[in-house]
Design a binder for these strands. Structure first.
Lengths: 135, 135
DNA sequence: AAGCAGTTGCGAATATTTCGCAACTAGCGT
DNA sequence: ACGCTAGTTGCGAAATATTCGCAACTGCTT
């Protein structure tokens, strides 16, 4: 039942659309609003794109999902639980790899020490060339 | 004269618009296509937004400018010479700070060692809270 | 001076995200 | 269980951002 209330607990109404959006984000790992909508429509064709956008925003406000900037276009969303890694986007092949956040610990510490800057490494992708494309 | 030929040397025609776009990018440090257009229009009102977009793309192809993802919307462009620092974007106040690329050296090395990933740290912004907003 | 190819301007087409508003419904109180 | 109220949804239109087609134009080479 804690499951059923995770939305209510945040002060949100429990609508089917909202649950579906959240479920889709969790299943997809990372996804653009468009992809989330597509996923949701697989089971509920009637859902509106605006609703997806609004729910992603709402869910983000309560901390259940977050968005990051992976590609050139729009944002992509993740479930909050997923945000324990950073995204390695390959500029050549477009693949998105993951790396545990620890590899950045040092870097984050440097920025904190030298600039007082509190870094959220997951928010933007790390851009470069993946191992396969380096060759 | 080397100055006059930096575009020609890359195989590009030397048009006033192109020079202006490049000059604007250099002056502005970081700027969105819109801002570049605005800057250019200050002296040459007739210039078209499409032209700005096309020139930014062209200049990027020959390596004179590069784009990075700083904010939530579109890309922002820099002169290639500027790409020696990374961008610390504050999620709260929106300020963009700079930090020398060295602070990430360790991090980049980690990614290279552990994942074979060749990082371009400048391409995406580093997101977080600036010193002022942390308080 | 003349021609070719790369560029520009302009408007329209796309794509993406937001907004207004009326209809709908989850959850509360009774 | 029933109805009320406020939060939500659907839908179409508006606001933004970016790209494209095409005809006119202009560097640059010869």
């Amino acid at each position: 039942m804690a499951e059923q209330h995770e939305l209510r607990d945040k002060g949100l109404r429990l609508t089917p659309q909202r649950e579906l959006v959240l479920a889709a984000v969790r299943e997809l790992g990372h996804a653009t609003p468009e992809e989330v909508a597509e996923k949701v429509r697989a089971t509920h064709p009637g859902i509106n794109l605006s609703t997806v956008y609004r729910n992603l925003e709402t869910l983000e406000n309560v901390g259940l999902v977050q968005h990051a900037h992976l590609g050139h276009g729009g944002a992509t969303y993740h479930a909050a639980e997923e945000l324990t890694h950073l995204h390695l986007v390959c500029g050549t092949c477009g693949s998105v790899g993951d790396a545990p956040i620890d590899v950045a610990a040092n870097f984050v510490q440097n920025l904190a020490d030298d600039y007082g800057f509190k870094t959220d490494v997951s928010h933007f992708a790390i851009y470069g060339l993946c191992a396969a494309c380096v060759k």
